[in-house]
Design a protein around this nucleic acid. Structure first.
Length: 519
DNA sequence: AAAAAAT
Protein backbone atom coordinates (compact mmCIF):
# COMPACT_ATOMS: atom_id res chain seq x y z
CA UNK A 1 0.00 0.00 0.00
CA UNK A 2 3.04 2.22 0.34
CA UNK A 3 3.26 2.84 -3.33
CA UNK A 4 -0.41 3.56 -3.40
CA UNK A 5 0.02 5.98 -0.58
CA UNK A 6 2.75 7.96 -2.28
CA UNK A 7 0.66 7.96 -5.45
CA UNK A 8 -2.23 9.57 -3.73
CA UNK A 9 -0.10 12.00 -1.84
CA UNK A 10 0.92 13.22 -5.25
CA UNK A 11 -2.62 14.34 -5.84
CA UNK A 12 -3.03 16.44 -2.74
CA UNK A 13 -4.21 19.91 -3.48
CA UNK A 14 -4.25 21.30 -0.01
CA UNK A 15 -0.73 20.93 1.04
CA UNK A 16 -0.16 21.71 4.65
CA UNK A 17 3.56 22.14 4.10
CA UNK A 18 3.02 24.66 1.39
CA UNK A 19 0.78 26.71 3.61
CA UNK A 20 2.74 26.11 6.76
CA UNK A 21 3.69 29.74 7.12
CA UNK A 22 0.10 30.86 6.81
CA UNK A 23 -0.92 28.29 9.30
CA UNK A 24 1.73 29.36 11.78
CA UNK A 25 0.81 32.98 11.45
CA UNK A 26 -2.76 32.11 11.87
CA UNK A 27 -2.09 30.19 15.03
CA UNK A 28 -0.35 33.17 16.56
CA UNK A 29 -3.26 35.36 15.74
CA UNK A 30 -5.57 32.84 17.20
CA UNK A 31 -3.64 32.74 20.43
CA UNK A 32 -3.70 36.52 20.70
CA UNK A 33 -7.35 36.89 20.07
CA UNK A 34 -8.70 33.93 21.88
CA UNK A 35 -10.74 31.63 19.78
CA UNK A 36 -13.46 33.37 17.96
CA UNK A 37 -15.89 31.76 15.63
CA UNK A 38 -15.94 33.24 12.18
CA UNK A 39 -19.05 33.90 10.22
CA UNK A 40 -19.65 34.64 6.60
CA UNK A 41 -20.20 38.27 7.41
CA UNK A 42 -16.76 38.40 8.94
CA UNK A 43 -14.62 36.73 6.33
CA UNK A 44 -11.77 34.59 7.48
CA UNK A 45 -9.25 36.48 5.38
CA UNK A 46 -9.60 39.40 7.71
CA UNK A 47 -8.50 37.35 10.65
CA UNK A 48 -4.92 36.88 9.69
CA UNK A 49 -4.09 37.35 6.07
CA UNK A 50 -3.04 40.62 4.55
CA UNK A 51 -5.09 42.11 1.80
CA UNK A 52 -3.84 42.77 -1.67
CA UNK A 53 -2.83 39.25 -2.59
CA UNK A 54 -3.64 37.64 -5.84
CA UNK A 55 -7.08 36.24 -5.90
CA UNK A 56 -6.10 32.63 -6.50
CA UNK A 57 -3.54 32.59 -3.77
CA UNK A 58 -6.08 34.02 -1.44
CA UNK A 59 -8.52 31.29 -2.23
CA UNK A 60 -5.96 28.60 -1.49
CA UNK A 61 -4.96 30.17 1.74
CA UNK A 62 -8.55 30.40 2.68
CA UNK A 63 -8.79 26.66 2.18
CA UNK A 64 -5.76 25.95 4.30
CA UNK A 65 -6.95 28.13 7.10
CA UNK A 66 -10.38 26.73 6.82
CA UNK A 67 -9.06 23.28 7.49
CA UNK A 68 -8.64 24.23 11.09
CA UNK A 69 -11.45 22.77 12.98
CA UNK A 70 -12.51 25.88 14.82
CA UNK A 71 -13.30 27.69 11.66
CA UNK A 72 -15.24 25.00 9.97
CA UNK A 73 -18.91 25.70 9.86
CA UNK A 74 -21.19 22.89 8.91
CA UNK A 75 -24.62 24.20 8.11
CA UNK A 76 -25.15 26.91 5.49
CA UNK A 77 -23.43 29.18 7.87
CA UNK A 78 -25.73 30.61 10.41
CA UNK A 79 -23.36 30.90 13.21
CA UNK A 80 -24.18 30.46 16.62
CA UNK A 81 -23.67 33.58 18.53
CA UNK A 82 -24.77 32.23 21.80
CA UNK A 83 -25.80 35.23 23.85
CA UNK A 84 -28.83 34.08 25.69
CA UNK A 85 -29.33 30.90 27.58
CA UNK A 86 -32.54 30.50 25.58
CA UNK A 87 -30.61 30.16 22.35
CA UNK A 88 -28.05 27.99 23.98
CA UNK A 89 -30.75 25.61 25.04
CA UNK A 90 -32.20 25.56 21.55
CA UNK A 91 -28.84 24.65 20.04
CA UNK A 92 -28.30 21.93 22.59
CA UNK A 93 -31.72 20.55 21.85
CA UNK A 94 -30.94 20.37 18.13
CA UNK A 95 -27.67 18.62 18.75
CA UNK A 96 -29.39 16.13 20.99
CA UNK A 97 -32.10 15.53 18.39
CA UNK A 98 -29.50 14.87 15.71
CA UNK A 99 -27.75 12.40 18.00
CA UNK A 100 -31.01 10.58 18.67
CA UNK A 101 -31.81 10.35 14.97
CA UNK A 102 -28.36 8.95 14.29
CA UNK A 103 -28.72 6.40 17.02
CA UNK A 104 -32.10 5.33 15.70
CA UNK A 105 -30.65 4.63 12.26
CA UNK A 106 -27.31 3.19 13.29
CA UNK A 107 -25.36 6.14 11.91
CA UNK A 108 -21.89 6.68 13.35
CA UNK A 109 -19.96 9.80 12.55
CA UNK A 110 -16.62 11.34 13.23
CA UNK A 111 -15.58 14.85 12.42
CA UNK A 112 -16.60 18.12 13.95
CA UNK A 113 -19.74 20.14 13.31
CA UNK A 114 -21.45 17.39 11.38
CA UNK A 115 -24.81 18.55 10.02
CA UNK A 116 -27.90 16.90 11.42
CA UNK A 117 -29.28 13.92 9.50
CA UNK A 118 -32.43 14.33 7.42
CA UNK A 119 -35.77 13.47 8.95
CA UNK A 120 -37.30 13.15 5.51
CA UNK A 121 -36.71 14.00 1.87
CA UNK A 122 -39.00 17.01 2.26
CA UNK A 123 -36.41 18.49 4.56
CA UNK A 124 -34.24 18.86 1.47
CA UNK A 125 -36.42 21.73 0.36
CA UNK A 126 -36.98 23.32 3.76
CA UNK A 127 -33.34 23.11 4.81
CA UNK A 128 -31.52 23.31 1.51
CA UNK A 129 -33.91 24.83 -0.99
CA UNK A 130 -34.20 21.71 -3.10
CA UNK A 131 -36.02 22.25 -6.38
CA UNK A 132 -39.37 20.50 -6.78
CA UNK A 133 -38.25 18.38 -9.75
CA UNK A 134 -35.91 16.27 -7.65
CA UNK A 135 -38.42 15.62 -4.89
CA UNK A 136 -40.99 14.76 -7.53
CA UNK A 137 -38.64 12.33 -9.26
CA UNK A 138 -37.65 10.74 -5.96
CA UNK A 139 -41.25 10.16 -5.07
CA UNK A 140 -42.16 8.91 -8.55
CA UNK A 141 -39.29 6.47 -8.43
CA UNK A 142 -40.66 5.14 -5.17
CA UNK A 143 -38.12 6.60 -2.76
CA UNK A 144 -40.25 7.57 0.19
CA UNK A 145 -37.96 7.64 3.18
CA UNK A 146 -34.27 8.36 2.99
CA UNK A 147 -32.06 5.42 3.97
CA UNK A 148 -29.62 5.96 6.85
CA UNK A 149 -26.68 6.72 4.58
CA UNK A 150 -28.81 9.16 2.59
CA UNK A 151 -30.01 10.89 5.76
CA UNK A 152 -26.46 11.65 6.84
CA UNK A 153 -24.32 11.85 3.72
CA UNK A 154 -26.60 14.22 1.79
CA UNK A 155 -26.51 17.04 4.36
CA UNK A 156 -22.76 16.61 4.74
CA UNK A 157 -22.12 17.01 1.02
CA UNK A 158 -24.66 19.82 0.72
CA UNK A 159 -22.93 21.81 3.41
CA UNK A 160 -19.74 21.63 1.40
CA UNK A 161 -17.88 19.03 3.40
CA UNK A 162 -15.90 16.17 1.97
CA UNK A 163 -16.84 12.77 3.27
CA UNK A 164 -16.09 9.12 3.26
CA UNK A 165 -19.01 6.87 3.71
CA UNK A 166 -19.37 3.21 4.53
CA UNK A 167 -22.80 1.64 4.41
CA UNK A 168 -24.05 -1.87 3.64
CA UNK A 169 -24.59 -3.15 0.12
CA UNK A 170 -27.94 -2.20 -1.32
CA UNK A 171 -28.57 0.58 1.19
CA UNK A 172 -28.80 3.47 -1.24
CA UNK A 173 -25.30 4.89 -1.51
CA UNK A 174 -25.74 5.89 -5.15
CA UNK A 175 -28.62 8.19 -4.36
CA UNK A 176 -26.70 9.55 -1.40
CA UNK A 177 -24.06 11.05 -3.69
CA UNK A 178 -26.28 11.87 -6.68
CA UNK A 179 -28.82 13.98 -4.79
CA UNK A 180 -26.39 16.65 -3.58
CA UNK A 181 -24.84 16.87 -7.04
CA UNK A 182 -28.19 17.41 -8.71
CA UNK A 183 -29.17 19.98 -6.12
CA UNK A 184 -26.00 22.03 -6.33
CA UNK A 185 -25.42 21.92 -10.05
CA UNK A 186 -27.54 24.03 -12.32
CA UNK A 187 -29.22 22.39 -15.27
CA UNK A 188 -28.31 23.42 -18.79
CA UNK A 189 -25.08 23.00 -20.63
CA UNK A 190 -23.35 25.42 -18.29
CA UNK A 191 -19.65 25.76 -18.74
CA UNK A 192 -18.09 22.37 -18.60
CA UNK A 193 -18.10 19.30 -16.46
CA UNK A 194 -19.24 20.00 -12.92
CA UNK A 195 -19.40 16.53 -11.44
CA UNK A 196 -17.44 13.34 -12.02
CA UNK A 197 -18.34 9.91 -10.70
CA UNK A 198 -15.77 7.12 -11.00
CA UNK A 199 -16.76 3.45 -10.82
CA UNK A 200 -14.55 0.36 -11.08
CA UNK A 201 -16.47 -1.37 -13.89
CA UNK A 202 -18.29 -0.32 -17.03
CA UNK A 203 -21.46 -2.07 -15.96
CA UNK A 204 -21.56 -0.11 -12.74
CA UNK A 205 -20.80 3.15 -14.54
CA UNK A 206 -23.66 2.45 -16.94
CA UNK A 207 -26.02 1.67 -14.09
CA UNK A 208 -25.07 4.83 -12.19
CA UNK A 209 -25.61 6.91 -15.32
CA UNK A 210 -29.08 5.43 -15.75
CA UNK A 211 -29.97 6.16 -12.13
CA UNK A 212 -28.76 9.71 -12.50
CA UNK A 213 -30.77 10.24 -15.68
CA UNK A 214 -33.91 8.99 -13.97
CA UNK A 215 -33.43 11.55 -11.21
CA UNK A 216 -33.04 14.39 -13.68
CA UNK A 217 -36.25 13.69 -15.55
CA UNK A 218 -37.96 16.93 -16.53
CA UNK A 219 -34.76 18.99 -16.32
CA UNK A 220 -32.10 19.47 -18.91
CA UNK A 221 -29.12 18.01 -17.16
CA UNK A 222 -26.41 16.64 -19.38
CA UNK A 223 -25.50 13.33 -17.82
CA UNK A 224 -22.95 11.38 -19.86
CA UNK A 225 -21.44 7.95 -19.63
CA UNK A 226 -17.86 7.81 -20.83
CA UNK A 227 -18.07 5.19 -23.52
CA UNK A 228 -15.34 3.96 -25.78
CA UNK A 229 -16.62 6.23 -28.52
CA UNK A 230 -16.71 9.24 -26.29
CA UNK A 231 -13.20 8.66 -24.96
CA UNK A 232 -11.83 8.43 -28.47
CA UNK A 233 -13.70 11.10 -30.36
CA UNK A 234 -15.17 13.12 -27.55
CA UNK A 235 -14.79 16.80 -27.84
CA UNK A 236 -16.20 17.87 -24.52
CA UNK A 237 -15.86 21.51 -25.34
CA UNK A 238 -18.54 21.33 -27.98
CA UNK A 239 -20.65 18.64 -26.42
CA UNK A 240 -22.62 19.67 -23.39
CA UNK A 241 -21.83 17.55 -20.38
CA UNK A 242 -22.33 18.52 -16.76
CA UNK A 243 -22.23 15.16 -15.00
CA UNK A 244 -19.75 12.58 -16.25
CA UNK A 245 -19.67 8.96 -15.12
CA UNK A 246 -16.66 6.88 -16.07
CA UNK A 247 -14.31 4.03 -15.31
CA UNK A 248 -10.82 5.18 -14.26
CA UNK A 249 -8.74 4.27 -17.26
CA UNK A 250 -10.94 5.89 -19.87
CA UNK A 251 -11.13 9.05 -17.86
CA UNK A 252 -7.40 9.13 -17.31
CA UNK A 253 -6.87 8.49 -21.00
CA UNK A 254 -9.11 11.36 -22.03
CA UNK A 255 -7.43 13.67 -19.54
CA UNK A 256 -3.98 12.80 -20.83
CA UNK A 257 -5.10 13.29 -24.42
CA UNK A 258 -6.41 16.68 -23.35
CA UNK A 259 -9.86 15.88 -24.61
CA UNK A 260 -11.28 16.72 -21.27
CA UNK A 261 -11.19 19.72 -19.00
CA UNK A 262 -11.77 18.84 -15.37
CA UNK A 263 -10.70 22.13 -13.86
CA UNK A 264 -14.25 23.20 -13.13
CA UNK A 265 -15.35 19.99 -11.45
CA UNK A 266 -17.13 20.75 -8.19
CA UNK A 267 -17.95 17.22 -7.13
CA UNK A 268 -15.76 14.15 -7.47
CA UNK A 269 -17.16 10.84 -6.27
CA UNK A 270 -15.13 7.68 -5.97
CA UNK A 271 -17.66 4.89 -5.82
CA UNK A 272 -16.47 1.53 -4.48
CA UNK A 273 -13.52 3.52 -3.31
CA UNK A 274 -11.60 0.70 -1.67
CA UNK A 275 -11.53 -1.07 -5.02
CA UNK A 276 -10.38 2.09 -6.76
CA UNK A 277 -7.51 2.42 -4.30
CA UNK A 278 -6.09 -0.96 -5.27
CA UNK A 279 -2.85 -0.98 -7.18
CA UNK A 280 -3.49 -0.73 -10.87
CA UNK A 281 -6.36 1.66 -10.28
CA UNK A 282 -4.86 4.07 -7.83
CA UNK A 283 -2.41 5.54 -10.34
CA UNK A 284 -5.27 6.46 -12.65
CA UNK A 285 -7.32 7.81 -9.79
CA UNK A 286 -4.39 9.94 -8.73
CA UNK A 287 -4.11 11.39 -12.20
CA UNK A 288 -7.79 12.26 -12.28
CA UNK A 289 -7.72 13.74 -8.78
CA UNK A 290 -4.87 15.97 -9.93
CA UNK A 291 -6.76 17.01 -13.04
CA UNK A 292 -9.68 18.19 -10.92
CA UNK A 293 -7.86 21.31 -9.87
CA UNK A 294 -10.74 23.45 -8.68
CA UNK A 295 -9.68 24.39 -5.15
CA UNK A 296 -13.20 24.23 -3.79
CA UNK A 297 -13.88 20.75 -5.11
CA UNK A 298 -15.79 18.40 -2.84
CA UNK A 299 -14.55 14.85 -2.97
CA UNK A 300 -16.31 11.87 -1.50
CA UNK A 301 -15.62 8.18 -1.10
CA UNK A 302 -18.32 5.55 -0.92
CA UNK A 303 -18.15 1.82 -0.30
CA UNK A 304 -19.63 -0.99 1.71
CA UNK A 305 -16.17 -2.00 2.81
CA UNK A 306 -13.61 0.39 4.16
CA UNK A 307 -10.34 -1.19 5.24
CA UNK A 308 -8.26 0.74 7.74
CA UNK A 309 -5.53 1.24 5.17
CA UNK A 310 -7.92 2.99 2.80
CA UNK A 311 -9.33 5.02 5.63
CA UNK A 312 -5.88 6.26 6.53
CA UNK A 313 -5.18 7.09 2.91
CA UNK A 314 -8.43 8.91 2.63
CA UNK A 315 -7.69 10.96 5.72
CA UNK A 316 -4.36 11.99 4.28
CA UNK A 317 -5.73 13.27 1.00
CA UNK A 318 -9.07 14.64 2.03
CA UNK A 319 -9.84 18.01 3.36
CA UNK A 320 -11.46 17.97 6.75
CA UNK A 321 -13.62 15.06 5.76
CA UNK A 322 -16.47 13.69 7.76
CA UNK A 323 -16.55 9.93 8.23
CA UNK A 324 -19.91 8.23 8.17
CA UNK A 325 -20.45 4.61 8.98
CA UNK A 326 -23.85 2.99 8.91
CA UNK A 327 -24.31 -0.13 10.97
CA UNK A 328 -21.20 -2.08 11.69
CA UNK A 329 -18.19 -1.42 9.54
CA UNK A 330 -17.58 -4.09 6.89
CA UNK A 331 -20.69 -6.09 7.57
CA UNK A 332 -23.23 -7.58 5.20
CA UNK A 333 -26.93 -6.81 5.08
CA UNK A 334 -28.87 -8.50 7.84
CA UNK A 335 -31.51 -9.54 5.34
CA UNK A 336 -29.25 -12.11 3.72
CA UNK A 337 -29.45 -15.61 5.06
CA UNK A 338 -25.89 -16.85 4.86
CA UNK A 339 -24.97 -20.52 4.63
CA UNK A 340 -21.78 -22.51 4.33
CA UNK A 341 -21.70 -25.86 2.55
CA UNK A 342 -18.79 -28.27 2.76
CA UNK A 343 -18.06 -29.70 -0.69
CA UNK A 344 -15.04 -31.73 0.36
CA UNK A 345 -12.78 -31.09 -2.58
CA UNK A 346 -12.69 -29.24 -5.86
CA UNK A 347 -14.27 -32.27 -7.49
CA UNK A 348 -17.14 -32.19 -5.03
CA UNK A 349 -18.19 -28.65 -5.85
CA UNK A 350 -19.96 -29.31 -9.11
CA UNK A 351 -21.96 -32.04 -7.48
CA UNK A 352 -22.76 -29.76 -4.55
CA UNK A 353 -23.92 -27.07 -6.95
CA UNK A 354 -26.17 -29.46 -8.82
CA UNK A 355 -27.59 -30.65 -5.51
CA UNK A 356 -28.30 -27.06 -4.55
CA UNK A 357 -30.19 -26.54 -7.79
CA UNK A 358 -32.03 -29.85 -7.43
CA UNK A 359 -33.21 -28.99 -3.92
CA UNK A 360 -34.45 -25.58 -4.81
CA UNK A 361 -33.74 -23.46 -7.80
CA UNK A 362 -35.24 -20.11 -7.12
CA UNK A 363 -34.12 -17.78 -9.90
CA UNK A 364 -32.57 -15.36 -10.37
CA UNK A 365 -29.37 -16.88 -9.01
CA UNK A 366 -25.83 -15.55 -9.26
CA UNK A 367 -22.85 -17.91 -9.15
CA UNK A 368 -19.42 -16.43 -8.52
CA UNK A 369 -16.14 -18.06 -9.55
CA UNK A 370 -12.55 -16.98 -9.21
CA UNK A 371 -11.36 -16.60 -12.78
CA UNK A 372 -12.52 -16.01 -16.31
CA UNK A 373 -11.39 -19.49 -17.34
CA UNK A 374 -13.36 -21.11 -14.58
CA UNK A 375 -16.40 -19.04 -15.50
CA UNK A 376 -16.22 -20.35 -19.07
CA UNK A 377 -15.78 -23.93 -17.90
CA UNK A 378 -18.58 -23.87 -15.38
CA UNK A 379 -20.82 -22.38 -18.03
CA UNK A 380 -20.03 -25.28 -20.35
CA UNK A 381 -20.82 -27.74 -17.59
CA UNK A 382 -24.17 -26.19 -16.82
CA UNK A 383 -25.08 -25.73 -20.46
CA UNK A 384 -25.83 -29.46 -20.60
CA UNK A 385 -28.22 -29.16 -17.68
CA UNK A 386 -31.76 -28.07 -18.06
CA UNK A 387 -31.14 -24.63 -16.72
CA UNK A 388 -31.18 -21.28 -18.46
CA UNK A 389 -27.67 -20.25 -17.61
CA UNK A 390 -25.44 -17.50 -18.90
CA UNK A 391 -21.99 -16.20 -18.15
CA UNK A 392 -20.28 -12.83 -17.76
CA UNK A 393 -16.61 -11.91 -17.48
CA UNK A 394 -14.23 -9.41 -18.99
CA UNK A 395 -13.14 -11.61 -21.90
CA UNK A 396 -16.51 -11.00 -23.49
CA UNK A 397 -17.15 -8.10 -25.81
CA UNK A 398 -18.88 -5.03 -24.49
CA UNK A 399 -22.00 -6.06 -26.30
CA UNK A 400 -21.95 -9.58 -24.91
CA UNK A 401 -21.47 -8.20 -21.42
CA UNK A 402 -24.38 -5.84 -21.84
CA UNK A 403 -26.59 -8.63 -23.14
CA UNK A 404 -25.69 -10.87 -20.23
CA UNK A 405 -26.65 -8.16 -17.77
CA UNK A 406 -29.83 -7.22 -19.63
CA UNK A 407 -31.02 -10.81 -19.97
CA UNK A 408 -30.38 -11.43 -16.33
CA UNK A 409 -32.27 -8.26 -15.42
CA UNK A 410 -35.14 -9.28 -17.66
CA UNK A 411 -35.40 -12.72 -16.09
CA UNK A 412 -34.41 -14.52 -19.28
CA UNK A 413 -31.38 -15.92 -17.51
CA UNK A 414 -32.01 -17.95 -14.38
CA UNK A 415 -28.45 -18.57 -13.38
CA UNK A 416 -25.72 -16.10 -14.19
CA UNK A 417 -22.16 -17.34 -13.75
CA UNK A 418 -19.81 -14.48 -13.10
CA UNK A 419 -16.36 -13.34 -12.12
CA UNK A 420 -15.96 -10.43 -9.75
CA UNK A 421 -16.77 -8.02 -12.62
CA UNK A 422 -20.29 -7.73 -11.32
CA UNK A 423 -19.56 -8.35 -7.66
CA UNK A 424 -19.67 -4.69 -6.75
CA UNK A 425 -22.45 -2.18 -6.91
CA UNK A 426 -24.61 -3.94 -9.47
CA UNK A 427 -28.25 -3.66 -8.54
CA UNK A 428 -30.21 -6.58 -9.94
CA UNK A 429 -33.65 -6.37 -8.50
CA UNK A 430 -34.62 -9.43 -6.55
CA UNK A 431 -31.63 -11.75 -6.81
CA UNK A 432 -32.83 -14.58 -4.60
CA UNK A 433 -29.60 -16.40 -4.12
CA UNK A 434 -25.89 -15.80 -4.50
CA UNK A 435 -23.68 -18.87 -4.64
CA UNK A 436 -19.96 -18.64 -4.07
CA UNK A 437 -18.82 -21.57 -6.14
CA UNK A 438 -15.26 -20.48 -5.49
CA UNK A 439 -14.37 -19.26 -2.05
CA UNK A 440 -13.99 -15.47 -2.05
CA UNK A 441 -10.47 -14.18 -1.67
CA UNK A 442 -11.29 -11.79 1.13
CA UNK A 443 -14.01 -10.81 3.52
CA UNK A 444 -14.59 -7.68 1.44
CA UNK A 445 -15.05 -9.75 -1.72
CA UNK A 446 -17.50 -11.94 0.18
CA UNK A 447 -19.50 -8.95 1.41
CA UNK A 448 -19.78 -7.43 -2.06
CA UNK A 449 -20.67 -10.69 -3.78
CA UNK A 450 -23.45 -11.66 -1.41
CA UNK A 451 -24.60 -8.06 -1.41
CA UNK A 452 -26.02 -8.60 -4.92
CA UNK A 453 -29.00 -10.06 -3.10
CA UNK A 454 -30.90 -8.70 -0.13
CA UNK A 455 -31.07 -5.21 -1.57
CA UNK A 456 -33.40 -2.32 -0.81
CA UNK A 457 -35.10 -4.12 2.04
CA UNK A 458 -35.60 -7.44 0.24
CA UNK A 459 -34.56 -10.77 1.67
CA UNK A 460 -31.85 -12.88 0.09
CA UNK A 461 -29.80 -15.99 0.48
CA UNK A 462 -26.08 -16.63 0.14
CA UNK A 463 -24.46 -20.03 -0.11
CA UNK A 464 -20.71 -20.46 0.05
CA UNK A 465 -19.14 -23.73 -0.98
CA UNK A 466 -15.89 -24.58 0.70
CA UNK A 467 -13.37 -27.36 0.47
CA UNK A 468 -10.71 -28.77 2.72
CA UNK A 469 -8.22 -26.22 1.44
CA UNK A 470 -10.57 -23.30 2.08
CA UNK A 471 -10.94 -24.24 5.74
CA UNK A 472 -8.15 -22.01 7.04
CA UNK A 473 -10.03 -19.02 5.65
CA UNK A 474 -13.47 -19.87 6.96
CA UNK A 475 -13.10 -17.85 10.08
CA UNK A 476 -13.06 -14.58 8.16
CA UNK A 477 -16.37 -15.40 6.60
CA UNK A 478 -17.85 -16.64 9.85
CA UNK A 479 -16.92 -13.32 11.43
CA UNK A 480 -18.83 -11.47 8.73
CA UNK A 481 -21.79 -13.75 9.30
CA UNK A 482 -21.83 -12.99 12.99
CA UNK A 483 -21.34 -9.25 12.42
CA UNK A 484 -24.38 -9.19 10.17
CA UNK A 485 -26.65 -11.06 12.51
CA UNK A 486 -26.34 -14.60 11.13
CA UNK A 487 -25.52 -17.52 13.31
CA UNK A 488 -21.83 -18.10 12.88
CA UNK A 489 -21.20 -21.80 13.09
CA UNK A 490 -19.67 -22.13 16.53
CA UNK A 491 -17.12 -24.73 15.51
CA UNK A 492 -15.63 -22.27 13.08
CA UNK A 493 -15.59 -19.44 15.53
CA UNK A 494 -13.68 -21.59 17.93
CA UNK A 495 -11.01 -22.28 15.33
CA UNK A 496 -7.69 -20.65 16.01
CA UNK A 497 -7.26 -17.25 14.39
CA UNK A 498 -5.74 -17.63 10.99
CA UNK A 499 -2.55 -16.13 9.81
CA UNK A 500 -3.09 -13.05 7.78
CA UNK A 501 -2.61 -14.60 4.43
CA UNK A 502 -4.58 -13.98 1.34
CA UNK A 503 -6.58 -16.76 -0.12
CA UNK A 504 -4.92 -17.68 -3.38
CA UNK A 505 -6.56 -20.78 -4.72
CA UNK A 506 -4.58 -22.88 -7.14
CA UNK A 507 -7.61 -23.96 -9.04
CA UNK A 508 -6.96 -24.43 -12.70
CA UNK A 509 -10.07 -25.87 -14.12
CA UNK A 510 -13.51 -26.94 -13.15
CA UNK A 511 -13.30 -30.67 -12.77
CA UNK A 512 -16.09 -33.12 -12.71
CA UNK A 513 -15.51 -35.98 -10.38
CA UNK A 514 -13.79 -38.69 -12.42
CA UNK A 515 -16.58 -41.17 -11.89
CA UNK A 516 -18.63 -43.10 -14.40
CA UNK A 517 -21.76 -43.50 -12.41
CA UNK A 518 -22.74 -39.86 -12.22
CA UNK A 519 -26.47 -39.29 -12.07
C1' DA B 1 -7.00 -13.47 -9.98
C1' DA B 2 -9.80 -9.68 -11.82
C1' DA B 3 -10.60 -5.25 -13.53
C1' DA B 4 -9.66 -1.00 -16.52
C1' DA B 5 -7.63 1.69 -22.94
C1' DA B 6 -6.02 1.44 -27.20
C1' DT B 7 -2.46 0.53 -30.45
Amino acid sequence: MDRASSMLFGGVHFDRKRFASDIERFKEKEAEQDIQIETESQPIESAGIENGRKKKRKANTFEAVESFSVFKASEPVHIVEVDSSEQKKEVEKQIEQAALLRKKHGIHISGHNVPAPLQSFEELSSRYGCKPFLLRNLSELGFKEPTPIQRQAIPILLSGRECFACAPTGSGKTLAFLCPILMKIKPGSGDGIKAVVICPTRELAAQTTRECKKLTKGRKFYVKLMTKELARTGDFKKMPCTVLVSTPLRLDFAVRKRKLDLTRVEYLVLDESDKLFELGFVEQIDSVVKACSNPSIIRSLFSATLPDSVEELARSIMHDAVRVIVGRKNSASELIKQKLIFAGSEEGKLLALRQCFAQSLNPPVLVFVQSKERAKELYKELAFDDIKADVIHADLSQEQRENAVDNFRAGKTWVLIATDVISRGMDFKGVNCVINYDFPESAAAYIHRIGRSGRAGRHGEAITLYTEEDKPFLRNIANVMVASGCEGPSWILSLPKLRRKKHRPQRDSISTAPDDNEE
